[in-house]
Design a protein around this nucleic acid. Structure first.
Lengths: 141, 141
DNA sequence: TATTGTTATACTCTATAACTATA
DNA sequence: TATAGTTATAGAGTATAACAATA
């Protein structure tokens, strides 16, 4: 059951999400990327040796066929490559090209900076509490 | 300038946003709404006497022409109406129909419950810190 | 002149269902 | 049988630019 306090908490999360989405829109646009493409590149920037299509879908909340299209479009721009998975001949690893890595890093930095800027007024303990809350609510990422 | 700690904070925000988006996807689907439509209805559910197109764009991070299309589609389903603004003949107020209000409330409750469920392990002080952070980062909403 | 909203246009994004190939 | 990924299809979502009407 929900209480009035929950409503404030949920609203807060929605509001924070709004800020994050805004960051991806703005940063993406400044690099000629859609927000979805920017998010994709940011995910790939974290994955060391490439990320599988299925895992991308899980990380981006997308059906696998949607991932196919999204990857198609950034591959068309030569930002990523589909690399055969050595251990599973059905699977692929999506990896960043040199240009893709450059853009991905720029986008990632841009988003971090923008969020950091918005949080500049935040006391350290609140920042830490937000981080702790995120880890607890989504332990696996 | 960013620090390693910021990176954790920004990542946390992105992760929380992911959860919120997931909530809108799931709740929307359970009511035959796209996530965008669910968000629109939730915004309208808060606005007492209808919300203008321009304000909707600001609240949803959308260009005005995108709002036109989004409202078109939910209006086609008779969930909202375009009402003339008494004080400005250029402007409109988007209002929920009876059916729209029912769906909007259901979607809003669904999202709140889902987020509350995900936060069930969270200590009160962390919940309060998240709320406080949101108000500070986005005072106007 | 500025603002509110729409239209026209061209993409991108997305899900569903059916498919291929490999495990 | 199950999983990884693609294709085909259809519709939703979105931005840009140009427009009309009102402020």
């Amino acid at each position: 059951m929900s209480t009035a306090e929950d409503l404030g908490f949920a609203t807060a999360l929605v509001r924070l999400s709004h800020l994050v989405q805004r960051a991806f829109i703005d940063v993406g646009r400044s690099h000629d990327l859609t927000p979805q493409q920017a998010q994709l590149l940011c995910v790939l920037a974290q994955g060391e040796k490439g990320v599988g299509m299925t895992e991308l879908g899980r990380m981006l909340n997308l059906e696998k066929s949607s991932v196919t299209g999204l990857v198609d479009r950034v591959q068309r721009r030569a930002l990523v490559e589909r690399v055969a998975d050595a251990g599973d001949r059905r699977a692929l690893k999506i990896t960043l090209t040199e240009e893709g890595l450059r853009l991905a890093n720029a986008a990632h930095e841009g988003v971090v900076e923008k969020l950091e800027e918005m949080a500049s007024e935040l006391p350290v303990d609140q920042r830490e509490a937000v981080a702790a809350a995120a880890w607890r609510m989504a332990p696996e990422g």
